[in-house]
Design a protein around this nucleic acid. Structure first.
Lengths: 224, 224
DNA sequence: ATTTGACTGTATAAACGGATTTGGTCATAT
DNA sequence: ATATGACCAAATCCGTTTATACAGTCAAAT
C-alpha cells in the first residue's frame, strides 16, 4: 500500500506545476489528478475543496521557501550580516516562481484565489516578522540602532517586491544579471546597517540561528 | 482674444485631472473639453488626435517632474550627494500621481495607450540616463568607483518602482510615513555609494549642476 | 478667423442564451 | 477499506446581437 502522505505530496507537486504554468483559475482539479497519476475523487480524500488544496500548497511552498533561504544562510561561511541574510532571501525567491507570484500578487497565477482568501498571505505579517528580526539584530549589536526597525523591514520587503515585479515593466534585455543585483543589494544593506566596521558579526550569527530555531520549532509544533 | 498657448495649457490641465482620476480609456475628449471650458472641436485645433493630446500631456508632465526634482535638489543646502538627489527624485514622484502611474505602468490610468504607443516612455532610457549620471559621479570622485553603474542605476529605478507600486499590494496602514522611507532610502544610497567619508562632495555638486544644465539645454533646444 | 456642437461610422460594452467546463458527490468497483 | 469516474448543478465560456459611447469631421454660427 502506498504511503498516503507521499501521495499528498505528489498532488501538491502537480498543483504547483500546473498552477504556476496556467494559473489557479485555469487548472481543473481533474488535471491535477491526472498529473498526479490518480483519480479526481482521490484528491477529495486529501482536501475538502480546491481552495483547501491551494491553501495547503501555499503553506507548503512558504515553508519550502523559508527552509531554502535558511539553508543558504547556514551554508554561507560569512553569513552573519544582515546583507548576507538578505541576499539569500532574494536568491530563494528568485529560485521559486510560485513564491514570486505570491509576493507580487500575480493575478494570472493566483486568479480568483486572491479575491476569496486573500487573507492567507498577508504582507503585513511578513513585514512584521522582518521588523522583529531587525530589532533582535539591533539588540545583539549586529547592526546600528539608530534606524527604525519597521521602516527598515518595509524597505526590505519592498526590495523583494521591486526586484521580482520590476520585470513585468522593463524589457528583458534591460535587466542586469541577477547575481549582480543580489550582490549589490546585499552590500547596500550591509553598508547601510553596519556602524562602519564596529559591528558584532558573531552576535548576528547567533541571532540568526536563534530566529531560525524558533521558526523551525513553530513549524514542528504545528503538526499534531 | 485669449492666448492660444494658455488655452492649450488648460486643456492639458483638464486632461491631467480627468485621466489620473478615470484613466485614459474612460475620459472622453468631450469631457476634457467641458472641464477646460471649451468645445470639443477646439481641442482638435490644438491636437491632431486624442493620442497626440496624451503624448503632449506625457511630455509636459515628464518635464514638470524633472524640473520639480531639480528644483528640490538646488534648494537643498547639502544636496551634493547621490542620496540627496535620490531623495528628491522620490519626493517629486510622490508628489505627482500621474508620474506615479507612468512609472508603475498603471493600466487603469494609461489604458489603451500602453498598447499603442508604449515606446513613448521607455524605462530602458530612464535607466540608461541614470547609469550615465552614476558614471559621471564616479569620474568626479563623488561616489565609489567599484560599483557597476548600470546595476546601480537599475536598482535606483527599481526603488522608485517599488516604492510607488508596493502600495497596490500592501494595506494602507502597513505603509510607514513617506518621509521616513525617503530618509532611509537616501541614507542607504549614501552609505552604499560613499567610500566611507572620503568623498568629494563639491565634485558631486558640480556634476549634478552640469547634468541639470545639459538637460535644461536639451529642453530649450526642442522648442523651435 | 475662430469656434461650435450636431452628425457619422466605428469601436466598445451590455444582453443573451446555448454549449462547455468544472467543482464536488457518491454509487459502484476493486 | 480505498479508489474510481459517471454524474449533477452551478459556473464559465463563447458566439451573436443589440445598444451605447466615442473619436474625429465639418457645415453653420459667431
Amino acid at each position: 500500500m502506498m504511503d498516503f502522505d507521499e501521495r499528498e505530496g505528489r498532488i501538491l507537486d502537480a498543483a504547483l506545476a500546473l498552477t504556476t504554468r496556467y494559473g489557479f483559475d485555469k487548472t481543473p482539479v481533474s488535471e491535477i489528478a491526472e498529473e498526479a497519476g490518480i483519480s479526481k475523487g482521490a484528491i477529495y480524500l486529501h482536501f475538502d475543496s480546491k481552495t483547501a488544496l491551494f491553501e495547503a500548497l501555499l503553506k507548503r511552498e512558504i515553508n519550502n521557501y523559508a527552509e531554502d533561504w535558511i539553508q543558504r544562510v547556514q551554508a554561507d561561511p560569512n553569513g552573519g550580516s544582515m546583507g548576507s541574510v538578505y541576499k539569500h532571501i532574494l536568491a530563494a525567491v528568485n529560485a521559486n516562481p510560485f513564491m514570486q507570484a505570491v509576493f507580487k500578487q500575480d493575478r494570472r497565477v493566483l486568479g480568483k484565489f486572491l479575491k476569496d482568501a486573500h487573507q492567507l498571505f498577508d504582507l503585513r505579517q511578513a513585514i512584521g516578522l522582518r521588523a522583529a528580526f531587525v530589532e533582535k539584530m539591533q539588540a545583539a549589536g549586529a547592526i546600528r540602532t539608530d534606524v527604525d526597525p519597521y521602516t527598515t523591514a518595509y524597505l526590505m520587503s519592498m526590495f523583494v517586491y521591486g526586484i521580482t515585479a520590476m520585470d513585468d515593466v522593463v524589457p528583458d534585455d534591460a535587466v542586469p544579471p541577477f547575481d549582480d543585483l543580489l550582490m549589490a543589494m546585499g552590500d547596500m544593506m550591509d553598508s547601510y546597517l553596519s556602524a562602519c566596521g564596529q559591528t558584532d558579526t558573531e552576535g548576528g550569527k547567533q541571532v540568526i540561528a536563534d530566529v531560525m530555531d524558533v521558526y523551525k520549532q513553530s513549524q514542528a509544533d504545528e503538526q499534531p
